[in-house]
Amino acid sequence: MMTMKVSRKEVEHVAFLSRLALSEREAEEFTRQFNQIFKQFEKLNELDTSQVEPTSHVLQMQNVLRQDSVRSSLPIDEVLANAPDREDGYFSVPRIME
């Protein structure tokens, strides 16, 4: 069986994808924790699941669907209430270069 090992570089990459800034200490700490978690998964991997269908959802429900009908939306002021910055009814964000 493959031993999974998460490097500190990978932890930093995952943090970057989520736009999290980790301190030196946090990066060390999370790398250690990630490796511990993976060790637990290795334990689970000892089980032979080749004959078991993957579970897509813990609930056995299906087809929870709604009719295509319009309901009222929030007032614009409420939509923008938590926006750090706004401009003419828009959310304003640091410029995105395209």
Binding site: D85, E87, F91, S92, P94, R95, I96
Partner: peptide, 11 residues
């Protein structure tokens, strides 16, 4: 995007 502005707007 508005030319020359330091921000982008989202709708």
């Amino acid at each position: 995007h508005i030319e020359g502005e330091p921000f982008s707007l989202v709708d």
